[in-house]
Design a protein around this nucleic acid. Structure first.
Lengths: 178, 178
DNA sequence: GCGGACGGTGAACGATCGTGCTATTTTCGA
DNA sequence: TCGAAAATAGCACGATCGTTCACCGTCCGC
């Protein structure tokens, strides 16, 4: 997961993993059966980390605006530390026109995350935190966009104001859905 | 540019380009001196396409909201057709933690684009289309975020509602800066 | 007319890739 | 304790990568 997080899924080769772990290539290959399986398993593991570090803390928070805020802050923290969860954003661009099981898995995870966002927002509506007529899909879309541009501003540009801007955009998004 | 646009900058190897063009690897290498030079030159070319297809049409439009809208619509069109300009969004993730001239160029181009956005917004303020107190940097940040999530929704998820959502988010962004 | 750039080819190099195959070691339950 | 099973290693293979080098035409300035 470290290798893939810093260099993309493409950098996660059986050879690089062998060097990193000190094991032989053939020994690793026997474990993972194929490179594709290695990649998908690492993606799955990163998905679990995503749930553990972002989704679960949010679900542990009070419903409504607070829950969405916790999710957002957890995302910021994970992005700040460059943890494995960043895999998704980069892998999504790496494999978006490269059919196969890796892409399929990425699509599924993306849809799952989107569903989680929508669900959180919907309960927020039901609890009266957000406007009745608000569109959950649109909210998830917009929030995800804020996350993506923050990721780019932080990791590519090393913009020190990245978090501040992300928070401002988030506040405006929440405000306009209140 | 075709190769890099569909498969990422990493797929643009001297070998793949040789096969695509029908030339020999060594012949191509003599042209580009190195793989890195090939990549940066392709990026530069994509940058010119970006200016020609997105920045210039916007600058040809009336100042203010109309100009920003034209820029946004041109971006949508380019993204829809999967043209070379899409290189930037994917390359940004491919090289964001891979130091070197490619990364440096990506950063520079990103900053340039950001400046263009800010400038357009600033003249929009001066002409009275946007609020006096609006923050150009924040606007550029938010608009870029909409573009990124649209790109992902369109190219990874093939979401048919991607453009509709992007337009809605854009309209809301404009509205809140009016 | 001739000599040197220029554009291009072909073969070869060392790396690295994924993937097999055959051992050998380690682990663990009966 | 023993034997099966799992884990790991070693070696080799064909591809592909970037890069180098020795060539070969084709043009253009002198």
């Amino acid at each position: 997961m470290d290798i893939a997080a810093s260099g993309g899924l493409g950098a996660l080769t059986i050879g690089s993993l062998a060097e990193r772990t000190g094991m032989s290539k053939s020994g690793l290959f026997a474990h993972f059966k194929s490179k594709e399986a290695l990649q998908t398993q690492v993606l799955e593991a990163a998905g679990e980390a995503f749930v553990a570090d972002i989704i679960r803390p949010a679900l542990a928070a009070p419903r409504g605006e607070k829950r969405i805020t916790v999710l957002f802050e957890c995302w910021l923290e994970v992005s700040r530390d460059g943890r494995a969860e960043c895999l998704f954003t980069s892998a999504a661009w790496e494999y978006d026109d490269q059919p196969g099981p890796v892409r399929d898995l990425l699509v599924r995870m993306n849809l799952d995350f989107n569903d989680s966002l929508c669900q959180m927002f919907r309960t927020g509506i039901a609890e009266g935190y957000f406007a009745e007529g608000a569109d959950p899909e649109q909210f998830a879309h917009d929030l995800h966009g804020i996350m993506l541009i923050h990721f780019q501003a932080h990791h590519l540009l090393h913009d020190p104001k990245a978090e501040e801007r992300a928070r401002r955009a988030f506040a405006r998004l929440i405000e306009s859905n209140r």
